[in-house]
């Protein structure tokens, strides 16, 4: 997994729960990499998952809730750091529809070895759209947090439901978005 997810996660923990908790997670999980993450490096995704589990234990909170919260945080960080790139998109559907064929293409230019999730967007009708998430990692909760923040960012009148797809372990899910008004 690309290091930017790790560095952003550590920053998320520091800003939400403080430096002591962030340090605790690294000490407690004793990652093989030593925890000296750089945004441009690549690390074992298991190290991130171990820290999430430890965080859930420390904060007595469910893992999905924490991962979703990280997803919310990650969206705003993306906007902070890559605002000009994302400024071309004016609605949730436009942005979600561009992830696979535009945003991921740009990511691969910088990180050719990135293992990105496969996202399929489909505009069902004027009011309804669908985003399918498929990954080798069980991070559908992270995707949900990102979608949630996207809708909030654009202020779109959209509600969505998530349907976990087999094997229902968070590696595959379908998000059905419905506009409540046009």
């Amino acid at each position: 997994m690309k290091g930017i997810v790790f560095t952003e996660f550590i920053q998320f923990i520091e800003s939400e729960f403080g430096m002591v908790i962030a340090d605790h997670l690294l000490v407690a999980t004793n990652p093989k990499s030593g925890g000296a993450y750089t945004a441009v490096g690549s690390y074992d995704a298991g190290e991130l998952l171990a820290m999430v589990v430890e965080l859930a234990k420390v904060k007595q909170a469910p893992v999905p809730v924490l991962v979703k919260a990280f997803g919310n945080y990650l969206f705003f960080r993306f906007f902070e750091t890559h605002g000009p790139w994302l400024a071309a998109y004016k609605t949730t559907e436009q942005l979600l529809g561009a992830i696979e064929n535009h945003i991921h293409v740009e990511v691969r230019k910088l990180y050719p070895d990135a293992e990105l999730p496969h996202l399929t967007f489909r505009q069902v009708d004027t009011m309804t759209s669908e985003l399918r998430y498929q990954s080798i990692r069980p991070l559908a909760d992270l995707a949900e947090g990102l979608i949630e923040s996207t809708i909030r960012h654009f202020g779109d009148p959209i509600t969505f439901v998530r349907v976990d797809l087999p094997p229902a372990d968070g590696t595959s899910a379908c998000f059905r978005l419905t506009r409540t008004s046009s």
Binding site: L26, A36, Y37, T38, V40
Partner: peptide, 9 residues
């Protein structure tokens, strides 16, 4: 860790 990360970077 930050120093180590910088060296790695």
């Amino acid at each position: 860790r930050e120093r180590a990360a910088r060296e790695v970077a």
